[in-house]
Design a protein around this nucleic acid. Structure first.
Ligand SMILES: [Mn+2]
Ligand SMILES: [Mn+2]
Ligand SMILES: [Zn+2]
Ligand SMILES: [Zn+2]
Lengths: 191, 191
DNA sequence: CCACATTTGCAAACGGTTTGCGTCTGAGCT
DNA sequence: AGCTCAGACGCAAACCGTTTGCAAATGTGG
C-alpha cells in the first residue's frame, strides 16, 4: 500500500519541471502504443492526442478532463477535444476511467508494468488520493458469475475516508468542508 | 434520461397489489422512523416526504429521482421536492444513495432487517438489477485503515455484467446496445 | 504534393441536479 | 379552533459536466 502522499484537488503532485518538450516528440515511455493503436484503425496521430497522453503519463493519480485541459499549454487544445480524446483513449484501452462519485470522470493512463486494474482511497475532506495495489474483488467476480448466471462480470470499487492530515485539522479547520450547504456534490460517500 | 432501464420506470418487481393505502396513513413497516427522525430535529412530516418513503418502501431496487417522481400520483409533489427530500432522507440515514456510474443517483430505503449495507450486480445491456447479499469489503476496510492511516474508511462497490437474457440476445438483437455512438453515458464500466 | 476522410474549435444543446424566491403549511401555543 | 412563523413547496431559472452539429483545419496514404 502506498503512502498517503498525493494529489490534492489540483495542486502538488509530481509536476514536470525538467525543461523538455512534451509536444509531438515521442515521450520516454509508451507513446509507441498510441501510434500503433491509431494507425491500426486508420485514425490519426494528432497533436492534442499526443499532448493529452503525455500529461497523463506524468501524473500518478486520476485526472479530470478539466485538470488535463489545464495541464495543457494554453492554446494547445480545446476542452471538447479533451473529452473526445479521452473517450478514444478509453476505447483503445490506453486509459482507465474512474468515478469517485462526485459526478466528474477521472482518467489514469494504463502503465506497462504490473499496475493494471486497481482502486483508490480518497480523502473525503481534501481529496488526497492513495493508490491501492491489489484487488480482492476478482475472486468475488467469479463467485458472483457462478451464482448469478451473469457473464463478463466486472466491478467499480473505491474507498473513502479521512486522511491523516484532515484527521488532525479539527472540524472547521478543514480546507474544503466538502462544500457543505453549497453545492451538494461532495464525494457523497454512501457507505 | 437515456440509460437503459430495468426496474423500468414503473414496471416489474414486487409491485404493491394488496389494496391498502400508501398515503399519509402510516404504512406497515417503518413510517414510525420518519416521524421520529423529523420531530427530533424540528423538521416537518409532510405529504411529499411520506409519499416518497412509501414509494421506496414498495420497490426492491434502487430508484432514481425521476422514477420516484413518476411513481408518485400526478400532482402529488414537485420533482425539485423529490430531490430535496432524498437529500434529507439520506442525511437522516433512512435511505442509501447508490451510483451505478451513469451519472444518475439512485436510492434504496434502508430496511429494518439484516439487509443493511450491500451492493448490486447490474446488467450493462438491459440494466436489470440483482441485489447482492454479503459484502466482503469490510475486512478490506480494516486492512486499508491500518496501512494508510486514514480513518472512517468506507467504500462504494458495484458489479456489472451481462444478464442471462442479454447473453442470448445475439449482438444487434439487444434492446439497448448501450446507446453507442449516441449519448456517451452508458454504465461506462471501467474495469 | 493532392485529395479526402478524420479532427478540431466553437458555440449551442443536453440532462441531471441545485437554488432563489414568493407562497403555502405543519405544528406548537394560546 | 384560531394565530403565528420557521420550515416546505412549486416554479422557473441557474448550474455544470458532458456531448454534439458544423464549418474550417489538418494528418495520411497514394
Ligand atoms: Mn490509480
Ligand atoms: Mn439494493
Ligand atoms: Zn477491483
Ligand atoms: Zn460493501
Amino acid at each position: 500500500m502506498t503512502t498517503p502522499k498525493s494529489t490534492g484537488n489540483t495542486s502538488c503532485h509530481t509536476h514536470c519541471t525538467h525543461g523538455h518538450s512534451h509536444d509531438s516528440a515521442r515521450a520516454p515511455g509508451e507513446p509507441r502504443d498510441l501510434r500503433d493503436h491509431l494507425r491500426r484503425e486508420s485514425l490519426r496521430v494528432t497533436g492534442p492526442r499526443q499532448a493529452i497522453l503525455a500529461v497523463l503519463q506524468e501524473h500518478p493519480h486520476p485526472l479530470t478532463n478539466k485538470e488535463i485541459f489545464a495541464a495543457l499549454r494554453p492554446g494547445q487544445c480545446d476542452l471538447a477535444t479533451v473529452y473526445r480524446s479521452l473517450h478514444l483513449l478509453e476505447d483503445m484501452g490506453l486509459v482507465t476511467r474512474f468515478d469517485f462519485g462526485d459526478g466528474v470522470a477521472r482518467f489514469e493512463i494504463i502503465r506497462g508494468d504490473a499496475r493494471g486494474h486497481h482502486h483508490h482511497l480518497v480523502c473525503t475532506s481534501c481529496a488526497t488520493i492513495v493508490e491501492l495495489e491489489d484487488c480482492l474483488a476478482r475472486e468475488w467476480e467469479e463467485r458472483i458469475t457462478r451464482d448469478s448466471g451473469f457473464k463478463e462480470v466486472t466491478h467499480k470499487l473505491e474507498f473513502f475516508g479521512l486522511c491523516p492530515t484532515c484527521q488532525d485539522a479539527k472540524p472547521g479547520t478543514r480546507r474544503q468542508p466538502q462544500k457543505r450547504a453549497t453545492r451538494r456534490r461532495g464525494p457523497s460517500i454512501s457507505v
